[in-house]
Design a binder for these strands. Sequence first.
RNA 1: GCGAGGGUAGCCAAGCGGCCAACGGCGACGGACUCAAGAUCCGUUCGUGUAGACGUUCGUGGGUUCAAUUCCCUCCCCUCGCACCA
Length: 903
Amino acid sequence: MTEEGYDHVAVERRWQDAWDEGDAYRTSDDVEDPTYVLGMYPYPSGKLHMGHVRNYTITDAYARYRRMNGDDVLHPMGWDAFGLPAENAAKERDTNPRDWTLDCIETMREQMVSMGFGYDWEREIATCEPEYYRWNQWLFSRFHEEGLVERRDAEVNWCPECETVLADEQVEGEAELCWRCDTPVVQRELEQWFLKITEYADELLEAIDDLEGWPNSVRQMQRNWIGRQYGTELDFEIEGSEARSASNGRGEGTEPREYGAVEAFTTRVDTIHGATFFALAPDHPISEELAEENDEIREFVEHEADPEGDEPNGVATGLTATNPVTGDEIPVYVADFVLSDVGTGALMAVPGHDERDHAFAEKMGEEIVPVVAPEPDDWDGETVPDAPDVSEEAYTDDGVLVNSGEYSGLESEAARERLTADIDSATEATQYQLRDWGISRQRYWGTPIPVVQCEDCGPVMVPDEELPVELPEFINTTGNPLDAAEEWKETTCPECGSEATRETDTMDTFVDSSWYFLRYVSPDLEDAPFDLERANDWMPVDQYVGGIEHAVMHLLYSRFFTKVLADNEGLDHREPFENLLAQGMVQLEGEKMSKSVGNVVSPQRIVEEYGADTARLFMMQAAQPERDFDWSEEGVRSTYAFLTRLQELVEDYASSPPDGEDDAVASYVESEIDAAIAIAGEEYDDLTFNAAARESQELVRTLRQYAEYTEPHAATYERGLSAVVRLLAPVAPHIAEELYDALGNDEFVVDAPWPSATVDRAYVEKRRNLVENTREDIRQIIDVAGIEDPKSIDVVVAPEWKYDALEIAIESDADNLIGELMQNSEIREQGDAAASYGQDLQAEREALTHPLEIDAEYDALESAVWLIEREFDVPVRVVRATDAADDVLRNAEPGRPAIEIED
RNA sequence: GCGAGGGUAGCCAAGCGGCCAACGGCGACGGACUCAAGAUCCGUUCGUGUAGACGUUCGUGGGUUCAAUUCCCUCCCCUCGCACCA
């Protein structure tokens, strides 16, 4: 534990300075189509946490890997700099959000540099700067021009004490208390600005199918969120019934009250014959009207209704609704399971075919009628099946209509079409769960919505030439500081010139992040949010990496913005992110790291103690990027020890280069170098850094063993060291620079070419398997045969004719394989041996695979002789078939040499 | 309830039709090195077995296939997302 590691502090500082000096990560505006690698920009909370480190190590490693493969790479970083925490921090510390935020950014930028993340800092953006947020305002105006902005009333969480709107997550507990002052939160109608994302609902939904580079989970979450449903909208005539008048004793002469047509939405109009009651949401206009004159209903609407509860509750209204198909008058309820923001806030209830309606009908004693039967297995397409028993449980699947008059015998799907066509008031309708995006926030630290409120003209857009509308000085107040900024608020109407006030709402910060990836393309551009031509060349982001918590909102809003920009601003791309990786959590003992639990590991401490390279490598090799994994101090230490060992290996080599032979051992090492390169490259392509790191570590082990066993061949050894240094460079860049330098290279390893292998992965794995299997077989024989003291081991390669026979067997599709083999004279001459091997081949026929060529097999075994000799301490020979006895050869097959152990 | 992803040897975890008794790591055990410890390196880690074999395994029960951990169906369990959504 007290063992000294390498001097990471010196190494890391040296190369961070050198990169800075050499502008190593600058992406020129002139490059044609760089590989765009992006991590979700962070909220500048003050310091980096492990989640950030993991996120940005993934993008950094991938960016470096692409760069070493010769790509131009765009790898920028910026700050999601607006948001409520800064406002709170400013209040607590008696400063202002801007200074606080800039401070945080400063600290975090330094931490990022100390982690060795290779960003093009010339492209850095911070959304709280007017140079950035003016384009939020400009885009808001463009959206407005396109009819995608709307101002309307909406219900919000309002804290009367703080005089501000609260986000849902700022309302605490069952009692719904304000998170800051524990005042009960109230619902309040406020005029809010909305972006009409629902206009794009269909495209946002359908284009998900083509996002093949995205995880299924995220795609599915977006589909659910958009929640498109096809159905039918139709009217039910509602009126007060005689029964109610009578029961209320208001006299027989009372005229039925007409409420007229009430629209309901249903996805199952095929079940309309089974609609035995009708239900309204508690806040449906009719419910509210009824509540004013009927105590029972008022009591229910105001007190009893509990949409959160499991039980469906409701109250009879005494009204009836007329089923537009059957003409039946069915009772109308106000029920709390009907939600005003789903469908039309009114529904026809079919207890026979909907579970919730069924439960309610049972409770209220309403009739339950089956009108759809499961389609019989041998159904002829017309006979009306028997009605199912729905008294206990609703039958909710599609089927064949029964008890439905002329519609009986139709399949559900067809019935829906016919009924929608036949019912006068019915139209096909599509419902979405997606709502328009309310972007108004009654807060200071955000982008001011560029609108002026004029008494005569109403809300008026601030003209482009007056943008940005800059934030005034921060005022420490309980409500919205913008409301208190009297001077700032006062202005004149851009249209009529009379006195007017500014809109005091600011934008949701998700607006900022919906297009920031475009700003990196031309971060300093002064006359547009982004350079269109360059964006067309550079977009989309090739690899985007971030947390799963943004699966819906940020990623959906960004897609929405991109589509609007494509439709109206000439952007050639309709999707912003080609490939998406949702990285897993860094945990401690299976638990999410969090301040409240107190199980946070500070990246800063790790960097000080072990260095950034260790932290990065440990994280990348611990698990695949999308998986959660446990932080382990022990793992970190062992990673540190690994880097230290590698460093020693390279330094030893550099100070006194070896002078060994280019022998069989060297050829073994060569092939292991090829293996590591071939495999690691593929793994980097797949972002499975853990597997790539494993190969690098394996190769280091091989090189160490090589140097311990014999005097290494200098060129081979150096090739190995140089390869391993470069294979690790994307993940552990500082130490890689240091060692690449020690190996005598002048350029940065950042700019070094990715090492190349002369063989492919399949070949390399065959070779490895052959050697490994052979060694295992030897061990097994010695063990099972109880050989105490072996004298020598012969490894005998199969005769050439067996390779030929195998080849023929693989290619052949003849029924009689033996016959086919015997047509070959070489094989036929082998007599019984050929027949016997032929039978083996026949048995395994379907499973045969190409082995290594005979010479490659011989070479592979020859190069592994040292491993066997070292292990068993006996002389080992690799023998060709021509030099071996016949009885030995019987056991030799291609890919599986015969083994002869003498004791 | 709906949707997505999972359930693999003591633990973590790869494989996703034949090369699989199943990569790798941890732990445990044995060995080398060392005065010793640590680090490092080598090997073992389902059972049986006196020459590389055989038997039983990849949540459960079926099925497809010459061949299934890998494909299909049933059920059970876990994790995540959505949800009195008409």
